[in-house]
Design a binder for these strands. Sequence first.
DNA 1: TTGTACGCGTTATCAA
DNA 2: TTGATAACGCGTACAA
Lengths: 338, 338
Amino acid sequence: MKAHITLKQIAQELNISVMTVSRALNNHPNVNKKTREKVLKAAKRLGYIPNFIAKSLVKKKTYTIGVVVPEITYSFFPEAIKGIEEIASSHGYQLILAYSAEDAQKEKSALLTLASKRVDGILISIAETSNDYSIYKQILSLGIPVVFFDRCVYNIGASCVSIDDENASEMLTEHLILHGYKRLAHLSGTLSVSIGKLRLKGFKKALKKYGLEINSDLIVETGFKEEEGYEAMNKILNLPEEKLPRAIVAVNDPVAYGAIKAIEEKGLKIPNDIAIVGFSDDIRANLIPTPLTTVKQHAYELGKVAATKLFNHIENKNEKIERKIVKSELIIRKSCGC
Amino acid sequence: MKAHITLKQIAQELNISVMTVSRALNNHPNVNKKTREKVLKAAKRLGYIPNFIAKSLVKKKTYTIGVVVPEITYSFFPEAIKGIEEIASSHGYQLILAYSAEDAQKEKSALLTLASKRVDGILISIAETSNDYSIYKQILSLGIPVVFFDRCVYNIGASCVSIDDENASEMLTEHLILHGYKRLAHLSGTLSVSIGKLRLKGFKKALKKYGLEINSDLIVETGFKEEEGYEAMNKILNLPEEKLPRAIVAVNDPVAYGAIKAIEEKGLKIPNDIAIVGFSDDIRANLIPTPLTTVKQHAYELGKVAATKLFNHIENKNEKIERKIVKSELIIRKSCGC
DNA sequence: TTGTACGCGTTATCAA
DNA sequence: TTGATAACGCGTACAA
């Protein structure tokens, strides 16, 4: 195990100054052609690998961005990360991946570590338990660009890339109503998180539009995880029979899967007894026994757009802070019985 | 946007030396209690966030590990990454995620960048096109611990964590043979990659054990991706009818999915016309119309074991280089018709 | 074209 | 207990 070679060592080897070596290796102009060749050869021979740490310290730039996600295994996030990685890589950046596990505390500590490591920017989809936004403000006040994706925080000086959750949720709900369902329930995500709030809003809007009653028993705040969908659905299924809903709008696909499990455990049929729809078009949506009607989120594309926006912010301090909408798509399958 | 606060600024603010501030903030002994409190208060008030870049330069330690994967979206890798992240996080490390997209060139450049960023260790599952191992050797010669996981390279001075691919493949094949299948085909992964080579070896071993003919027409080298499975299967399906296999052993689940698509496009039924088995127990395996018989890899667990092994190497230069086997499990479903 | 001095923010070391 | 100085590896700015 040989230690890392430094510019200094190359310089000594060749009896020239460190700066000349640095310039030669960084394609600076004003370096004698022969000198450059000599340096390049020596660098190669010695196995020189530049020390980005030292470079970063001087340049105040790490060519690294942080990506904070609440989940890794749902197919939405891996796909988004793939999109992010491709854009980052094409810009010559690496990715520090941090996983909050839906926990605000872990998220906060991840953000501080990212700040410590002086990442050039951060992409984040917030945890379902996050409701204190001061940490995001602190990061922003440090001059680190932040772009939220999917789960956003608005009006704190950061751009956001997501689908039009409110509108998509309204369309989805409307689709159910137009197919004759009158008693609808909503398994809402955490309401302190944008997608939770907005999808609920869209749900209610559709009910109102068609003069349907908004029954608070039929709106259960849950999280974004499968098990939470299971529990929430059981709560609803324990209502007296005349109060039971005919259709369920779940805040996302995993919650829908949990709900489906609960429904089937009661011996009820989907969609005949209860129809259900989800949100995201997770990889499983089309494969489960009764394929799930859902809103396709184009996670890969969304990741790309979010990353591109982040690099715009990184490269241009005056880049406009905005809310970017990526188009989504209603995917009709059997679970809604339409 | 205020710039980052430095130790120097805190020191000036309090009229003490930088070193005292550094010591106070890093819980060094021999710091006056009052001084420490004063420093901590000032640091908090000013919003001090330590600069890990500078610290890393001095300490030659970044508390960052690199993770290089050939794929992000197949469920095997997200789950492995989740396991890795949890172990890393519990050790106080962050993760730089690099994606090789099965491309040896991208992989090499990712490894060099990771070396440049002076990660403390690297976890890697190699790309299907990687066959020049000199880059791995170079990284190792720099004293950066490397642990391979799933797709390993042996005998170059790095530990490896995987399932017992050869044995698992043999058992899987044997299972088919014991259920009466005599003409078996294998869609092998790239043979320059460990899992490709070993799973093929296991396949052949089982055939030999039962005295079955090894027909080279029925062993097609493909990659690890779904589309490659599709193409390879089509090649087999174009054989004259009397040569067609009755059962297929695919190198992994994605390849099996591709093959299934090809089989079904020909109007053949699984498992009645052709049986098929995969490898990994991908999230879709149990959900497709004819659930896939496969070998469960416990990706999350495997990620944890691999990460733990890496930290052992990082923390102890004398940690034994070894091949660690994580147990796998034969999962019998309908696709094999057993 | 090449070299020198200095600084990036932090810690190690030795002195006070 | 505290401080001064040097060093980590590199780039900027300026001088030669």
